[in-house]
């Protein structure tokens, strides 16, 4: 009984620490790409750690099985969402200058 709670506490502390760092990064970085990296630190690592902690702490078997399914779908949906956002930044006009400078650098793209 005690070991479960200690493991959950460890995951909780790890997740919270990464979340705080991600929040600092969200205000410290200047361009949208770097902000997306810092945001995924909070949106992916923190939520994943919390999900594992909740999986350990879950009170009944019905809740445990649903959290396992949720983790599997989270592994699919979290990268898809941030991939849609990153593709929008790549095609938007704000990143146009960056892409032009990159095309100058290597001709193959």
């Amino acid at each position: 009984m005690m070991i479960k709670e200690v493991v959950a506490l460890i995951f909780f502390i790890i997740g919270s620490a990464f979340g705080i760092v991600g929040m600092i990064g969200l205000f410290r970085f200047k361009d949208p790409y770097s902000r997306l990296h810092a945001g995924s630190l909070c949106g992916t690592t923190t939520v994943f750690s919390y999900l594992i902690a909740l999986l350990i702490l879950s009170p009944s078997i019905a809740i445990t099985s649903r959290i396992v399914i949720l983790i599997i779908f989270f592994l699919i949906s979290a990268p898809t969402g941030s991939s849609i956002v990153s593709k929008f930044i790549w095609e938007s006009e704000e990143a146009e200058d960056q892409r032009r400078s990159m095309q100058k650098e290597d001709k193959s793209l």
């Binding site: 949208p32 902000r35 997306l36 995924s40 949106g43 992916t44 939520v47 969402g81 956002v85 929008f88």
Partner: peptide, 13 residues
């Protein structure tokens, strides 16, 4: 783009 990044994080939270 910045607003979309924030919304992406917000949906996970």
């Amino acid at each position: 783009s910045d607003r979309l990044v924030a919304m992406n994080v917000l949906s996970s939270i």
